[in-house]
């Protein structure tokens, strides 16, 4: 795009000048179009669904199709609006919801931290490898995505279960006599999340670390800093935006994760995705389920804003 930013689509399309002029008169020049597409995307796939969910969250459950009362009605030229904020107040009444949010954030936070501990050295190693090997190594990081996410989680069931590969191996070597109970525990949930989301940690870290100017490290060494000091005072601060981006990409989806705790977690693994499922399916209370989802969105908005701030700071710096 940077080659010819101002020409817009008119110069690209065959027979385009006419169309281009019409579009420009409508205020849709090249830049306008470039911005319009993602805006339209967000409008269609984020804002409108969000407003629908927000609307349902202000309704009241009923035995009907759909199973809630209308929020507004137009009868004989009179618009009557019924907003029920009780659903949000209800979330405060029962400590279940608060503890589910806290538990989700805790599990997502610990998983993110573990993913960072594993992902950072891997990203660093890839960024420091000879250039001709980097693509291969990155391929290996992304390769698991070619298999369905669900299958990869199921594969862990095969590893972790009482009769599974790990237990059978440990019992064969004689290290243990009784199978270890690993499946249906929080431990299995951490493994599942860290394993599934690790590439999201490695890729932004790699993108950041590969740009790191070697001369900074040389300067640090010349000035007498040990490798550890150089890492802590030069490399780490310079890769901060990569760390934040990686952490957010792992943390945000992990908070709302439903599949991994459902398949690998125990019955006492209480995450918000599970509470949402219960409200929606067991209680058939779509309004409360929507309220839970809206509150979760706001719990996530703060990290997202941090991410955006880090990204814009990064762009400003480079």
């Amino acid at each position: 795009m940077s080659a010819a930013p101002d020409t817009g689509p008119s110069s690209r399309l065959p027979g385009g000048p006419m169309i281009g002029r019409v579009l420009e008169r409508l205020g849709l020049g090249g830049r306008g179009l470039v911005i319009a597409i993602p805006t339209l995307w967000l409008l269609l796939f984020f804002l409108i669904p969000f407003l629908v969910v927000a609307k349902i969250s202000l309704s009241e459950a009923a035995i009907a199709r759909p199973p809630y009362l209308p929020v507004w009605e137009w009868v004989d030229g009179v618009l009557s609006v019924n907003l029920n904020f009780g659903n949000y107040l209800f979330l405060l009444e029962d400590p279940l919801y608060l503890s589910a949010y806290i538990e989700s954030i805790k599990i997502a936070g610990i998983s993110t931290f573990i993913a960072l501990l594993i992902g950072y050295p891997m990203a660093y190693l890839i960024a420091r490898s000879p250039e001709n090997q980097r693509n291969l190594l990155l391929m290996l990081v992304v390769l698991p995505f070619w298999t369905s996410f669900l299958l990869r989680v199921y594969a862990w069931i095969g590893f972790l279960k009482a009769n599974g590969i790990i237990n059978n191996f440990l019992m064969w070597t004689g290290i243990i006599d009784e199978p270890l109970i690993m499946l249906q525990t929080d431990f299995a949930v951490y493994i599942g999340i860290v394993y599934s989301y690790l590439p999201f940690m490695i890729l932004p870290l790699y993108a950041n670390l590969v740009k790191l100017d070697q001369s900074y490290l040389e300067a640090s060494a010349d000035l007498g800093a040990r490798p550890a000091t150089t890492f802590l005072t030069v490399t780490l601060p310079l890769s901060a935006s990569g760390i934040i981006a990686g952490c957010m990409l792992v943390f945000i989806p992990a908070v709302g994760e439903f599949v991994i705790p459902a398949l690998l977690g125990g019955p006492d693994t209480l995450m918000i995705g599970r509470v949402l499922w219960d409200e929606f399916f067991s209680n058939r209370d779509w309004p409360i389920a929507s309220a839970v989802a809206i509150v979760m969105l706001f719990v996530l908005v703060i990290p997202i804003m941090l991410l955006r701030k880090a990204q814009s700071a990064d762009e400003g710096a480079s």
Binding site: D94, D268, V275
Partner: peptide, 12 residues
Amino acid sequence: LTRAWTTIKTGK
């Protein structure tokens, strides 16, 4: 019932 079930499963 669902609330009691959550209590049974999670202890919360």
